[in-house]
Simulated assay, not measured.
Amino acid sequence: MTGGPRGEDGGVLGPRALGRALLARQHLLERAGTTPAAMIGHLGGLQAQAAPQPPYLGLLARIDGFTPDALTGLIETRRVVRIALQRGTIHLVTAEDCLTLRPLLQPMLDQQLRTTFGKRLTGLDLDALAAEARALVEAEPRTFQRLGAELAAARPDRDPAALAQAARCRLPLVQVPPRGLWGRGGPAAHTTAEAWLGRPLDPTASLDGLALRYLAAFGPATAADLQKWCGLSRLAAVLKRLAPGLVTFRDEQGRLLYDLPEAPRPDPDTPAPVRLVAPFDNLLLSHADRTRVLPEAHRPRVMTQNGIVLGSVLVDGLVAGSWQLTGEGAGARSVTVRPFAALARADRDAARTEAERVLAFAGGGGEVRFEEAG
């Protein structure tokens, strides 16, 4: 099913219908033959604070024929970058999205800084701090530890960590390679997006465009879902303004869902293949109500109290277990699958096939292990 009626007469969409729509847009029903850059752009970025596996494994789940070098080359040639964006977390995004999304998300970053470090920054001239930090990181990429220490040299009464985070908020700081490269890695050293990309930020980007991009990759969705994904607030007015060009539905709780008229909304009974979804994948992090793909009973088993989001096993479109790759490249040794309940033989075989695909991607060799269900 694609498209639907305009106005608030699209009917009710249950969790299964919402899940199939999400999986279709995430290319987790059928893998795509597109380029990594195009996929990253479509998804609005891949969460990437845990270097380097999640973005690579996220693309592997979605793209036929994807290899590590395909993404590594994009990072090294500055076509994609790692920068704090949605929810204040590190995302891997295209250079163009770095320049357009970063200004839009500034209010959220400001709020996070006030909430977390406000008392330690009281009375500080943040404009002067940002100017000094810019000069430092553009002269040579710096880790936050080094940057904080250098900023504190002229401010000995201030917390260096708070100074570094103030710079992170006020400046569009990208992490430079080899940080985040498959099989290599390095310290999280930063410079400004303008210096790294040779272009200024785009001041013309709009929240309307942000909302439409979100619906294309994550809809149908409520205003609360959109806000959960990006970290901004008061976006209901944006969707209401866009509503004449959208189609709307209700979920089973009566909440208003917005969507693009021609976006895919498959039949709820469309088969969903077993997939191994990457750790920290935005599939699980981009809705206020995640139950379209993540049963609430399983949420604590893949989202730990210390903020870790495990790799997830999708069976029939729902999270049914977790998984982990140990090592990459020459160090790849195993993929461990941990089902939450006993898997049917066909689903277990499909999970093994997906795990073997991960091992082949990671450099070959190694073994697939299944832990006891439960």
Rank of each mutant, 00 (worst) to 15 (best):
Val337Gly: 08
Pro279Met: 07
Pro68Tyr: 10
Asp110Phe: 00
Leu285Asn: 07
Ala153Phe: 04
Ala21Cys: 05
Leu101Arg: 06
Gly317Asp: 01
Gly219Glu: 01
Glu194Gly: 05
Leu23His: 00
Gly185His: 08
Asp110Val: 01
Leu59Glu: 04
Gly118Thr: 09
Arg82Glu: 15
Ala50His: 12
Tyr214Asn: 07
Gln145Ser: 13
Ala51Ser: 13
Asp269Pro: 03
Ala152Leu: 00
Ala355Trp: 01
Ala263Trp: 03
Gly231His: 02
Leu59Ser: 01
Ile75Lys: 14
Arg234Asp: 10
Val137Asp: 01
Ala224Val: 00
Gln53Phe: 06
Ile40Ser: 08
Leu85Met: 12
Leu257Thr: 01
Ala342Trp: 12
Gly331Glu: 15
Pro295Tyr: 09
Ala131Asp: 15
Asp269Asn: 06
Glu76Phe: 09
Glu76Gly: 09
Val293Glu: 03
Tyr258Met: 10
Asp157His: 12
Gln305Phe: 11
Glu296Cys: 04
Ala161Cys: 08
Leu109Gly: 00
Glu328Asn: 14
Gly363Tyr: 11
Ser233Ile: 13
Ala131Ser: 12
Arg357Pro: 07
Leu151Gln: 03
Thr204Ile: 01
Arg168Ser: 15
Tyr214Met: 11
Thr116Pro: 02
Pro295Asp: 05
Thr204Trp: 00
Thr100Ser: 14
Gln227Cys: 13
Leu235Tyr: 01
Ala61Ile: 01
Arg213Met: 04
Ala320Gln: 14
Asp97Asn: 10
Ala221Thr: 04
Gln111Trp: 11
Leu151Asn: 04
Gln253His: 12
Tyr258Lys: 11
Arg199Tyr: 01
Pro339Glu: 05
Gln253Phe: 03
Gly118Leu: 12
Val174Asp: 08
Thr35Tyr: 13
Ser233Met: 08
Phe249Lys: 06
Asp347Glu: 15
